[in-house]
């Protein structure tokens, strides 16, 4: 893994005439797992898409190793930064191996189609995600958890040092959410990949993030190691939720226990 510097400077992003992210500065820590959290519509997915060069900045820039990504060729960015969007589309009847192979696109030329390196990358990606045994199965025949691992395999086959994932656990049950986050941690630890994940589940975010970014209304409220930044005030500010923060009995990371209007037996800590 080569080390890379992905950062945004004074970044403003938006759709039509609405700014979603405004004048934001952020640096993605190299070789770590960064998790972005925030309420719905806080701009976290937009920021992720901006970092992956999917959106043209209204102001500022996303810099990859010091160069504005807008000035780089999209295939060159795609050799360093991979993106797994929230709802990718599996073409009709496609098999696992074929789909994973599509991740090789940025490494192939207009005429040069398939090389031994492509084979090796696809095989490594399927091995790492435990999808090699599914290679010949059509995507439509897989469970949600298997399918998500196949998409991660496609992102891995792209062989980028940075992998960005937009809510990869959304349609998964709790078992498969944990399994997927474990897999991403494996990839980070064993292969040194820098990983950025947008997540909904605050407790899983606290457990798996080396670096947590909390966003609200298109701006970063606080960022840092979860144990350093998570407290009841932050949760109240970012999510508008009253909560107690206790140590996660399994990982020791902060665990957010919401206080709703009902079933509240103890006074606030």
């Amino acid at each position: 893994m080569t080390s890379h510097d992905l950062r945004a400077e004074d970044l403003t992003l938006g759709y039509a005439d609405v700014d979603i992210v405004s004048h934001l500065d952020v640096q993605v820590p190299d070789g770590r797992i960064t998790v972005i959290v925030g309420a719905n519509a806080c701009g976290k997915s937009t920021l992720l898409r901006g970092l992956a060069r999917l959106l043209k900045p209204r102001s500022g820039a996303v810099l990859l190793d010091g160069k504005a990504v807008q000035d780089l060729r999209s295939v060159d960015v795609a050799k360093v930064v991979g993106l797994l969007p929230q709802t990718p589309v599996a073409p009709d009847g496609i098999t696992v191996a074929d789909l994973v192979g599509r991740g090789r696109y940025p490494h192939q030329g207009f005429f040069r189609r398939w090389s031994p390196e492509d084979d090796a990358a696809v095989e490594a990606a399927m091995e790492a995600t435990g999808t090699a045994d599914l290679a010949e199965r059509p995507i439509s025949a897989l469970s949600g958890g298997q399918r998500q691992r196949v998409w991660v395999a496609m992102a891995l086959a792209q062989d980028t040092d940075l992998v960005l994932l937009d809510e990869p656990t959304t349609y998964l049950d709790i078992t498969h959410q944990v399994e997927l986050l474990d897999l991403l941690t494996d990839l980070n630890r064993a292969h040194g990949k820098t990983i950025v994940i947008v997540l909904h589940d605050l407790n899983l975010a606290c457990r798996y993030a080396d670096h947590l970014i909390a966003m609200k209304s298109g701006a970063i409220v606080r960022e840092g190691a979860p144990q350093d930044i998570i407290d009841a005030d932050l949760v109240s500010d970012v999510f508008g939720l009253s909560s107690d923060i206790v140590p996660d009995p399994v990982s020791g990371t902060p665990m957010v226990v919401p206080r709703g209007r009902h079933h509240v037996a103890t006074p606030a800590l």
Binding site: R53, R73, V89
Partner: peptide, 23 residues
Amino acid sequence: LLMGRQLGVIELGDDAAQGLGLR
């Protein structure tokens, strides 16, 4: 036929295709 490769990426959805470096 030459553009079939681009087509194979575009059919994964616009975001995935852009993430793979397709314009």
